[in-house]
Design a protein around this nucleic acid. Sequence first.
DNA 1: TAGATTGTTAATCGATTAACAATC
DNA 2: TAGATTGTTAATCGATTAACAATC
Lengths: 228, 228
Amino acid sequence: MRVASRHPFPHPSIRRLPLYLRFLKQLRDAGSQKISCTRIARELDLDSTQVRKDLALTGIVGRPRIGYVLTDLVQAIEKFLGWDQRALAFLAGVGNLGRAIIGYEDFRRCGLDIVAAFDIDAGKIGGEVFGRRVYHPAEMPALTPKLGVSVGVITVPAVAAQEVADVMVKSGISGIWNFSPIRLELPPRVRVENALLTSSLAVLSVDLKRESPEAAPPFQRPPARRSR
Amino acid sequence: MRVASRHPFPHPSIRRLPLYLRFLKQLRDAGSQKISCTRIARELDLDSTQVRKDLALTGIVGRPRIGYVLTDLVQAIEKFLGWDQRALAFLAGVGNLGRAIIGYEDFRRCGLDIVAAFDIDAGKIGGEVFGRRVYHPAEMPALTPKLGVSVGVITVPAVAAQEVADVMVKSGISGIWNFSPIRLELPPRVRVENALLTSSLAVLSVDLKRESPEAAPPFQRPPARRSR
DNA sequence: TAGATTGTTAATCGATTAACAATC
DNA sequence: TAGATTGTTAATCGATTAACAATC
C-alpha cells in the first residue's frame, strides 16, 4: 500500500499538457480565437475525449459547438501547471548537460528560473555560465533561503547525485529535478521528478529492435509449465 | 482503434529496465554474485512482483530461494534492450543540448554511438564537437547509407524540428530520438521516441504547487450539473 | 433548426499488486 | 527440513476509449 504517492491528477494527463500548451500558443500567436478538442486531437494525433478530459483538469469550460477561447485556455493550462508563477532554482553540476539546461530558454517560459549554479571544480567556481554565477556547494545552505530558491536541478554524475541532493535537502529546497540516472533518497517533504533520459532511449531501442529482427526474437515465451 | 501502436512489451516496464541495469552493474562491479527481486525492490523502492515481471521480459530465469545470477541478468537486460549492439547515430542541432548529448558518455554504454553532427550554422560546419565532425544537413542523405547510420537525434529548435526530421527520413534513418517539444509527422516505418523534458518539469511543477498552496486550489470541482 | 461539440458516465483496456503453488 | 524466493494466475487499480445527453 503506497498511500504517500497518491496523485490527485493523473500523471499521463499532466505530461500531455505542455504539448497542448505549445500547440495552442502557436495558434494564438497566429491569430486564432477559438479551438475545439476535435481539432487539437486531430493535429496532435490523440483521442478527442482524452484531450477534453485533460483540459478539464485545468478548470477550463468550453462551449458546445464552439470550443474553447484560446487565450483563456492557454492561461488556464499555465495556471494549472504553476507556470504563470516563477520558481527560483539552483543547478548543481556545470558539465555539458548542466550548461545546456541553464542555456535552454524554454524552461524560463515554464516558470523555472535558474539563478545560480554549483560545482566542485575550482576552475568553474567564481565563474559564470550564461550569466549565472557558479558557487561551491558548501555555499548552498546560506544562499537558498537568502535568494528564496525552492527547486534544485541535479546534473552531476551519478556517483555525486545523492550527496548533492543531501545538500539541497539541508538547504531547505522543496523540489528536485533529477537528471542523474539514480533513485534519490529524500525525506517525504521533498518532491522529486526524475528526467530519465536513458529510459526514453530504452523505449526507442526496443522499438527499433522489433523492427529490425537481426537475430531471432529474444522472447519466444515457452508454454506455461505449471498448473495449479 | 489504434492497431498500429500495439506494444508487445509494456512501456512502463521498458522504462524501468535501465534503472535496474545501473543498480545491478554496480552490485556486480562490487563483487556480488547473486541478487533477488526482493532486494532489488527494496533498494529501488518498487514492488517485488513488479520487478520480477519486468525482469521476466528479458527471458532471464531465476532460482527459487537463490535469485538471479548477476552477470546473466545484466547481460539479459542489455540484450533485451539491444544495448549489447551498437547503433550508429547522427545528431542534428549543435546547440547547448546537442553538445551535451554528444558529450554524454553514458549513451555510448546504451549502444548509441553518435558518429557525426549536423547544423546549418556556417560557423559550426566543418568543425568538430567532442571529436565528431559537423556537416550541413544537405550532406545527410549521402552520408547515412555510407556510414550505416540508423538513428537520428533531434536537438534543433522547435521550428526546425519537422524539417530536419524530413531530411532524416529521406536519408533512410529508421528511428528518431526527438528532444524538440513537438510531435513529428513521420511515415510509419520510422520509429520515434520523444524525450519530453517539459513534460517532466510539468509533473514536478504540479507536485510542488500541491505542496505549497499559495492560492486557493485551482480545481474545486463543482457538483455534477446534469442527470441523464 | 440541424449538427457539431462539450461534459460526463459507462465500458474497456492495460498495468500494478495480491495470492499462492512450485521450488530449491 | 523450513522458509525464502521464483513464476504465474487472479484481483485490483487507474487510464483510455466509447457512448450519449445537453447545449449552442
